[in-house]
Amino acid sequence: MTHNPTIVVGIKQVPDDDEVRIDPDTGRLDRSSAPAVLNSPDRNALEAALGVRDDVGGQVIAMTMGPPPAADVLKEAVAMGCDDGVLISDIAFGGSDTWPTSLTLARTAEYLDADIVVCGEETTDSSTGQVPPGIAAHRGWAQLTYVEELEPLPEANQLAARRDVEGGYERVVADLPVVVAVAFGENEPRPAGLHRKIYAENEFEPVTVDANDLDIDEETVGLEASPTNVGGMETIEGVDRERTVVDDVDELAEAIRSTEVFA
């Protein structure tokens, strides 16, 4: 069966990172005006998944859990080459932290009969990196995080990967089903093909599933089932910097020399 694996890719819509900058004067930002985009590490996940399909065939399905407008990222995934896209949406999911989020995604992966689940390293909005291991843990599946390269081994019903580890790398082989988190920036995501793009824009309709379809007990998801809560938010005072731009190297050397570092 794994000569034609079902590869499910977790992707998320997030506020555009480039619009989310620290304003050095006020130390504040306006996220509401930031347009929603595809979490950029998820492009690497999509590329890795499509790469596996290039090697051994099968199908690639993108899944996103979020409100209906999040379906936009599914269009992008389909334009890049995914065979299909699933929107996982239900008010019951609102306020989920990583525990119920990964439960919901794990259920969806199972519902789609996934052999391989591919995720990004982390999201730029919640940046926990905990969802992919969470998906694996909810199902007792194998996991491969910080993946630089994937090598499907269909004969053995396994997936091998090169992982980035502190100070080097390792090569690991995992039994299927497996959850992969691709290291951000490790591959060159392919551009959307013209025909796929037209299809994604005009014809593609995502499959939509809710808690009921996934056979998820509403009490196991959402805010209530999230072990963690936000207890408070504090604006971080921007560090007050001199912000002096000097004209030449001698002046810069002088400035460095005059700091306490050289005292």
Binding site: W99, S127, G129, P133, A136, T145, V165, E166, T228
Partner: peptide, 23 residues
């Protein structure tokens, strides 16, 4: 919060239904 720590923390937090705050 190394690659190793972030790799396995969820495999503890999920089955025990613990609260896990990253980074």
């Amino acid at each position: 919060g190394t690659h190793t720590g972030r790799d396995f923390a969820g495999r503890v937090a999920v089955p025990t239904h613990a609260g896990l705050t990253a980074d």
